[in-house]
Computed example of a mutant assay.
Amino acid sequence: MFKLVGMAVIFACVLGGFVMAGGQLMVLVQPVEVLIIGGSALGAFLQANPIRIFKIVLAKSPSMFKERFTHEYYTSVLCMMYEILNKARRDGLLSLEDELDDPNSSTIFSKYPDLLKDERLITFVCDYLRIMSMGSMAPHEFENLFDMEINSLKEELDHPAHAVNKVAEGLPGFGIVAAVLGVVVTMGMIGDGDKEALGHHVAAALIGTFLGILAAYGFFGPLSNLLEHDAKEELNVYESIKASMVAFSSGLPPALAAEFGRKVLMPGHRPSYKELDASIREATKR
């Protein structure tokens, strides 16, 4: 919601100020300038990044306008971890075999449909539960394995934000390219003596620079920051899962392991001890 408010403020202030200064809004409608700037930026993005990064950015961008990692989301993750670890302690790790082979029909995972949609998260949890069930592993070895995968995951999650940031840095330059081309067209018309047409083309050239700068600092720059923040919050979820599972492998009870996971979460969305305890009690009744 606040992201949409921010975009509305940008449009209101920039366009409102332009109109108040006596400008005409239709002058800003320059499809050719948009084509040059947008097409150049898209081409540079495709040239600099693998196609999977383009697909990730395309899929993630619309979701940036809603809160994906909410207080309830983190609570659900901790409750799910408690239930899984509690079953492992009560019935043994081998009792989770059916749950891990088909999470969609699992009695535990199916309680959390929003989490079940996140294939990477569920795969992450299942993989480490399988490793635990294969045999005894020292907690520090288990933690080292977590750290190596989380470091790789961080690089993967950070890449879209860096890619969009590079586009944001290049947009003012593409705006200048559009402006220069507009000036070239204008120079070619000087001999015609049509002052109105000359004025129109000069304005169009200047608008190219304006659009490039506005897109860079008003939209693509903030989008890269949103993607970066989203990556940090997603990584924090995996760090919380790691803390819970390492604590459990060290011999701590499931409730305390879930508490370890809770303390790792960022304070902004971290549930309190009482909230988590109440949510766990409610979940185990279902």
Rank of each mutant, 00 (worst) to 15 (best):
V185L: 12
P160Q: 00
S249E: 06
D127R: 07
A168V: 02
E196Y: 13
Y238F: 15
L211M: 02
S272L: 11
G38W: 01
A44C: 00
S63A: 09
S61N: 08
F109Q: 02
F248W: 12
A203M: 06
S61C: 00
V77L: 01
F69E: 04
R130A: 08
I241G: 02
M7F: 04
M26D: 00
S76E: 14
T107C: 13
D118V: 03
A258Q: 07
M20L: 14
V5R: 14
G261Q: 06
H269W: 04
S95R: 00
G16E: 03
G182W: 07
G175C: 07
S152Q: 12
I56F: 14
P50W: 06
A255N: 14
E67D: 02
F142W: 01
L153T: 08
A138Q: 10
A205C: 09
R281T: 12
Y74R: 13
A283V: 01
K274H: 05
G218K: 07
L4V: 05
K274S: 10
T107H: 14
L58E: 12
S272T: 15
L214Q: 07
F146D: 06
V9R: 06
S136V: 15
L256F: 05
A41G: 04
H201P: 09
I10E: 13
K166P: 05
I190P: 07
N165T: 10
V57P: 03
N165I: 07
M64V: 05
E196A: 13
M26V: 10
I176C: 00
I131P: 04
Y82W: 15
F248S: 05
L100S: 01
L58C: 13
E72K: 12
K195N: 11
A88Y: 10
V14P: 01
L211S: 03
I36G: 05
S272Y: 09
A8G: 12
N165H: 12
A257P: 02
P50C: 01
M137H: 06
C13A: 15
G22E: 06
R130Y: 14
V167N: 03
M20K: 13
G22S: 08
E33C: 04
F54P: 03
L153E: 05
D277C: 10
G23A: 09
V167W: 01
V164S: 08
V185T: 14
L145I: 14
S249P: 07
F18K: 00
H201Y: 15
E275I: 02
L115F: 04
E141H: 12
A48M: 08
M245C: 05
R89D: 10
S250C: 06
V5Y: 13
K263V: 05
F220D: 02
L226A: 11
C13F: 14
A257I: 00
D118Y: 03
I176Y: 11
